[in-house]
């Protein structure tokens, strides 16, 4: 074997797949589409999801909801933190993918990936605090114990940001699952690869299958059935342009999905709690407390 033959070792391409129900299927449609870097060079073929893929993802997300929303907040925090750990270990891969996807230099892409890892850490810490921030006892005028607690809305469809293919994605997905929702995520249409790789990280972070489902493809094609799906409880339109957003919001009204409209966001900025609270329901429980009792004293 000559030296030149050694140097010309052909690299192994990665087949990018969807992430649904904790598994890595191809699109049931058998379709793929070409993903290029910012200069138009071929990077990979990504699965082009169909409405049936969207349907399967909703089924997986619904199936995962009871277990994930019922897990302790501490446990959810541990798992989100585990995602950060796993990402840190595969940092180089994500720096390369984000750089390719968004046309960033290695150092800028590095900063984006670091910010995304830190975002997982931020939300990991929120899981067991948000209830104390937004819930609490209400001093009703009567002999009743009255407590309001936040609960996850359910299955949330997320249209991930189109431009910020990784930090933006993490910024919309992490808060949704931190509070116990499960998600069906439509990745950035043009730059789906960092998102699909994130699926591999999630699969190895103890995150139960179905909590996050990642679908690449044409945003409008996948989002339309999701917005109309009667078993989806909410939709984040972050990655929808104006006309599509309006159409989807109209479709979402059919089962009164909670809708988060698209708005300009600086993904690098402090995220605050807005996205955590967007997909929470407040449940208020009443119970009698005491009564004056037969001896006239409270007991």
């Amino acid at each position: 074997m000559s030296e030149s033959e050694k140097a010309a070792r052909l690299s192994v391409f990665k087949t990018y797949k969807l992430f649904v129900g904790g598994k890595f299927p191809r699109s049931e449609s058998g379709r793929v589409y070409e993903v290029t870097d910012s200069k138009g060079r071929w990077l990979a073929n990504a699965p082009q999801s169909s409405r049936k893929d969207a349907r399967d993802a909703v089924v997986a997300a619904r199936k995962a909801f009871a277990g994930w929303s019922g897990a302790t907040a501490y446990n959810r925090g541990q798992i989100l933190y585990r995602v950060a750990e796993m990402l840190e270990g595969r940092r180089d891969q994500f720096v390369r993918e984000v750089g390719d996807a968004e046309g960033l230099s290695k150092s800028k892409a590095g900063a984006v990936v670091d910010a995304a890892i830190d975002r997982w850490v931020w939300y990991a810490g929120w899981t067991d605090k948000i209830a104390q921030i937004v819930g609490g006892a209400n001093p009703v005028a009567g002999p009743y114990f009255n407590l309001s607690s936040p609960e996850p809305t359910g299955v949330v469809a997320i249209l991930a940001p189109q431009e910020s293919s990784f930090l933006g994605l993490v910024s919309v997905v992490a808060p949704v699952i931190a509070t116990g929702n499960t998600a069906v995520v439509v990745t950035s249409e043009a730059s789906p690869l960092p998102a699909l790789s994130l699926g591999e990280v999630l699969a190895t972070s103890d995150l139960p299958g179905g909590v996050v489902n990642l679908l690449s493809g044409r945003t409008a094609e996948i989002a339309t059935p999701l917005a109309a799906h009667q078993d989806v409880n909410a939709i984040d339109l972050a990655g929808a342009e104006e006309v599509l957003a309006k159409e989807l919001e109209i479709a979402a009204a059919d089962n009164l999905k909670r809708v988060r409209r698209p708005q300009p966001v600086d993904w690098a900025a402090d995220p605050g709690t807005e996205r955590l609270t967007s997909f929470l329901e407040t449940k208020t429980v009443w119970h009698p407390a005491g009564g004056s009792g037969s001896s006239g004293a409270a007991y």
């Binding site: 005028a141 009255n146 309001s148 407040t282 449940k283 429980v285 009443w286």
Partner: peptide
Amino acid sequence: AGVVWANTFNKFDPTSP
């Protein structure tokens, strides 16, 4: 459900969401 009444029903209060 947004409001759960345990051992009571149809109670309302301005402080209670």
